[in-house]
């Protein structure tokens, strides 16, 4: 049967596509895990680097990533939720809303290196924050904003209209309804989105290239105006700078594994949470 043959061939092709995708991405994880694992040790995670980046650990690098990410989320979260609340709860359907929607979509599509330049021109230079945690966090925060808005929007839209009406029918005000009923109900969904964007932000390199990251700093960052080492930038820097490429490469493997583990763990956790929420409500 010719029909059946072409069908089987086609389906086999699709299967190959799926397999290749999983294998290609799986092999990246595998190689980095296999080679990075030997570098990992307790001291690698808890010590500061020394001997021109060829010895010691990456503790300040991990801490730096943590600070920058935390700062970015602290900046983007309230703004993102407020924006989503406006779009879902307050906005009459109008041109204004469309303009806001379009700008969110386009902001989400801006290349990350462009965010970096924006941060350089505005936060580092114009506001004079210098190359610092603050500049990096603000830059990454803007990058995370569209992600947080759309996940918060999704969570707010999932709140049934009927319980909004119930609250209003009891004499609650609009803001009272949002604060007491809508936001608490949407909270798990919003959190899931936030966790997902933490994963994304923690792995971004280009935006912090000129706004926050340094190849080497002595010890831990001291204030929000300090330069920091950050995991993603550190991997890049270890591969391209410094005087001992071979020794640095081993550390780069370790950093990659740590970053990969962090990001996959955070994202995996968020995806797991979302899956569970969907099966609870849907």
């Amino acid at each position: 049967m010719k029909k059946e043959f072409s069908q089987n061939l086609g389906f086999f092709g699709l299967f190959l596509c799926m397999l290749t995708t999983i294998l290609a991405l799986g092999s990246i994880i595998y190689f980095i895990a296999a080679r990075g694992f030997s570098v990992l040790s307790w001291s690698f995670l808890t010590q500061v680097p020394y001997s021109a980046m060829t010895k010691g650990g990456i503790a300040p690098v991990i801490v730096g990533t943590f600070y920058i990410t935390l700062g970015a989320i602290m900046f983007a979260l309230p703004l993102g939720i407020a924006c989503a609340v406006y779009l879902c709860e307050y906005s009459p359907k109008s041109i204004v809303v469309n303009i806001i929607r379009i700008s969110i979509n386009n902001l989400a599509g801006v290349p990350s290196v462009v965010f970096g330049l924006f941060g350089l021109a505005v936060f580092v230079k114009f506001f004079g924050f210098g190359v610092s945690i603050l500049s990096g966090s603000l830059t990454l925060g803007i990058l995370a904003l569209p992600m947080i808005i759309s996940s918060a929007q999704e969570a707010l839209l999932a709140v049934p209209q009927s319980i909004r009406e119930a609250s209003l029918s009891l004499g609650a005000t609009k803001w009272g309804t949002i604060k007491n009923i809508v936001l608490p109900t949407a909270l798990p969904g919003i959190l899931t989105g936030v966790i997902l964007s933490i994963g994304r932000v923690a792995g971004e390199t280009a935006p912090i290239l000129f706004t926050a990251a340094a190849f080497y700093t002595r010890g831990y960052p001291k204030s929000v105006f300090s330069e920091v080492m950050a995991l993603p930038y550190h991997i890049y820097a270890l591969m391209t700078e410094g005087a001992h490429p071979d020794k640095q490469r081993a550390i780069a493997y370790g950093c990659s594994l740590v970053l990969l583990f962090l990001v996959l763990f955070i994202s995996g956790f968020a995806i797991f949470l979302r899956q569970r929420q969907r099966s609870l409500y849907g």
Partner: peptide, 11 residues
């Protein structure tokens, strides 16, 4: 006050 078509208790 109002009671709706579908029961709509708050979560």
């Amino acid at each position: 006050g109002m009671v709706f078509q579908k029961p709509n208790p708050f979560p």
